[in-house]
Amino acid sequence: MTRGAKVRETGAEARALDDGGGAHVMSWVIAIMLFLTLLAGAAGLATARAAGALDRQMAGRLTVQIVEGEAQRRDAAAAQVLAVLRTQSDVARATPVAQADLARMLQPWLGDDAEAAGLPVPALIDVDLTSDDSAAIARVRSAVTRASPAARVDAHATWLGPVGRLLDTAAWLAGAIILLMLAATTAVVMLAARAGLEAHRGTIEVIHMLGATDRQVARLFQRRIALDAGIGAVAGGVLAGGAILLIAGQVGALDSELLGGMRLGPLDMGALVALPFGFVLLAVVAARLAVLRQMRRML
């Protein structure tokens, strides 16, 4: 026998199943599924990161407004409130917002000469609490209103809460999409394995009659599916990786405080890198289960 024939023999068991005319269909399916799953995963993780960052920003933070039309009375009240805040054990830090900063923030709406025009501008004090429990907020609110009836206390959690809940919902939705994609991939692989069994019924029957066990037959399909899924995983992973990097670059360029929290950490990246391997493993296990179940129907 020629050397070439020997080489062909060595790979024969793996080639006992030809492609049945469906070459690389599974690769395409896996590539598309993985691409979408990776995007959903990256979006979900980034959104969860942003929600976490927002939570940290909101937790235990207050803004005290002194709403007083007359500037002198406003400044006096602000000083009094600031003094009271700094005596509170619940307050970690109380920082007055400089009027110049406030004028700069209002400049797009009120123009450059708002104060000169007699428009009432409140005094603001940023407050960081030592804890974010509602009792601490209530105590501080009480102390502030006692110090000045013109003072209003806004807890950041009150007005940024809906945004945080929206981000949380988006993150959970991304998780649900990933689960659905995994379920769909499993179903597709099982269907493909069953179709493969049908397409190769003649070959399988012969191998079966030669004494092959169910596990040996399943291994033939596992190899085939693993190869196709591996090719698909590489293609889908590379495409999704490129897309994620592109979007990450664009988000970074926005210089947004909220979107800035959407950075993927090493653990997130690790989870995303593990997804293609998980897909291949899932495909192999699904194919094995499908083939073994079908084989049990044969004698």
Partner: peptide, 17 residues
């Protein structure tokens, strides 16, 4: 098995074993 050579077809029982 149509896509296997004569040698590979003959070898199948031994590979299965």
């Amino acid at each position: 098995i149509p896509h296997l050579s004569a040698a590979d077809n003959i070898a199948l029982p031994l590979r299965v074993a």
